[in-house]
Design a protein around this nucleic acid. Structure first.
Lengths: 224, 224
DNA sequence: CGAGGTGCTGACTGGTCGGTCAGTTAACAC
DNA sequence: GTGTTAACTGACCGACCAGTCAGCACCTCG
């Protein structure tokens, strides 16, 4: 039986490489399903009041099955966050490496940060995770990795823009840290007090700061 | 018997105005003592794993007493946050209204934001509160008030600096929002991953952005 | 075919913890 | 001093819930 984290064992990783009806593939699919359900439940109920029974019933599965696939509830949640972080990193990579000039790409990364709709809850997960990570080295590592990915992407886009002569910035790493911090702060506020600040204003702030950091005028970025 | 929040009843507020051995004064002191203990316990154990028994034993008091003074555990924690928020606002007010030119005051506000030492845990409380507020309108209101206070102070200092001809900023409210967001983001990072960014760098980022927002050169603010 | 392993069930348990309550002590009112 | 009420105790309870376990059905491989 499993109970080992999928990244911890030595076997091949990608479900898609396996026979789709092999036992390993079935288990992988079930694991993914449970992780997704856990994500939903955490979004709805919050991390600390999520019960394993909730995840079970959201998947129409017995409570025992959760502990068949995941040793503890903390394991389940950590794996869920790891999976979410990985997915986020992949999306990020895609957004940042798409074609376009430096300003276009930077603006795309910024827009990717921001919530899409009024009640986009994607950041709820990370706010909960920040708090939980204060008590869990495991979660802290997962978050640190995601954070590094964000910083790396911002820095890379800026550096490439500078190299191409499109941007002007003598401290890409510092600029990335400042933009990243600004966006985290704005998003935190927007998620906790959605009525206090509009998406439009969020985006405007982000573009204002980004433009300045890369030595351009605000008008170099798209209008509202 | 009490069980009413101190801000909810109509009686006079300040313990210091009462006879120090009157029953009301004793109850007020006990309440304050319990709130402070709750704060300690939350800092140590986290919000969701804080037990009322922990607060009781940290105060050398019976478990029942907690529920004599506070209807529920959630009440206790909300009151504790309200008290912390109020204290924070008072400190803030003091820091911002002390004498000095605009740059000095702005720099003082910024430094007040930042943690004093390597393991200053003051922000832990607010990170936990952000997460918890996602599920509690009561907490959300407490945080919104504190947030408004921060923004108001930043905006006021900038406006007064502009009026005095010391600063140049055509959107004090926007600048305050951006500086505030930057600081929240930086502090979040510094608290969750203290090893990832030094206090010095934090302060440097804050001063860099603040200087730009008020139309000054970085050199107008103190060096490291 | 049969043996052994895998995915899964659901009843159960042991511990935890918020909240209650009957009772005690001492301050205060009259 | 006598009655009343505030502050407080600590035993208790009942709900909740993570994790266990015996057993079952099915797949797969020899």
């Amino acid at each position: 039986m499993p109970k080992t984290s999928p990244t911890a064992d030595g076997r091949g990783r990608h479900e898609s490489l396996r026979a789709p009806h092999s036992r390993a593939a079935i288990a992988d699919r079930r694991r993914a399903e449970l992780l997704e359900a856990a994500r939903q439940v955490v979004l709805e109920r919050g991390m600390s009041s999520t019960r394993v029974a909730d995840v079970a019933s959201a998947t129409n599965v017995s409570g025992g099955l959760i502990h068949y696939h995941f040793a503890t509830k903390d394991d389940l949640i950590a794996e869920m966050l790891r999976a979410s972080s990985l997915e986020e990193q992949q999306q990020l990579e895609r957004v940042a490496s798409d074609s376009g000039d430096a300003v276009t790409r930077l603006d795309r990364v910024i827009r990717h940060y921001l919530p899409r709709t009024k009640d986009d809850q994607s950041w709820v997960l990370w706010i909960e995770a920040w708090a939980a990570s204060l008590r869990s080295p495991v979660l802290r590592n997962i978050l640190a990795e995601l954070e590094r990915a964000w910083l790396a992407v911002l820095e890379r886009v800026i550096r490439e823009g500078v190299a191409a002569g499109e941007l002007d910035c003598d401290d890409p790493s510092g600029a990335a840290e400042r933009i990243d911090a600004l966006l985290d702060g704005l998003l935190l506020r927007a998620t906790v007090h959605p009525e206090a600040i509009s998406r439009r204003r969020l985006l405007e702030h982000a573009r204002t700061v980004a433009a300045h950091e890369v030595g351009l005028d605000r008008s170099a970025f798209p209008r509202a």
